[in-house]
Design a protein around this nucleic acid. Structure first.
Length: 121
DNA sequence: GCCCTGACCGCCA
DNA sequence: ATGGCGGCCAGGG
């Protein structure tokens, strides 16, 4: 076969890649957040070699395939704040999941102690 | 290609 | 603590 321009993983993903790298990096970082610990969009972006692109982390989680079973609830906004609107379905769901892991959630915020650094990833 | 919309963030009034 | 603003950048229309 002379030209194989499609990698195996590319076949499992819709065409028009290019951003795929960033998404994979983000998903990998999120998947590495330990149970019972939390990180922020900004920190995840940084760890995924995408400093300053916190929004892309939000997008990555938004479009993440359910099959990946990512612990999306472990990602919160700066300062440990749950970014979804107070009474939204998602906010409640995230708080519920976090509490289920023993994370204290008070007033839409997680305790600073729950934040993890995720240094080398 | 332009414009708008975001699971964001830091700064400043 | 709170709200506004600009910066960031990928998608979708």
């Amino acid at each position: 076969m002379r030209h194989r321009r499609t990698r195996p993983d590319a076949l499992l993903r819709p065409p028009g890649a290019g951003t795929t790298r960033a998404l994979d990096a983000i998903w990998q970082v999120v998947g590495a957040i330990p149970r019972g610990r939390v990180s922020t969009y900004g920190a995840v972006a940084h760890a995924a070699a995408l400093p300053g692109r916190a929004r892309q982390v939000g997008y990555a989680l938004r479009v993440a395939p359910a099959e990946l079973n990512l612990p999306w609830h472990r990602v919160v906004g700066a300062g440990g704040r749950i970014v979804f609107p107070r009474s939204s379905r998602q906010h409640l769901e995230q708080a519920r999941r976090l509490r289920a892991e023993g994370v204290r959630v008070r007033d839409g915020r997680v305790a600073a102690a729950a934040l993890t650094d995720l240094d080398g990833l």
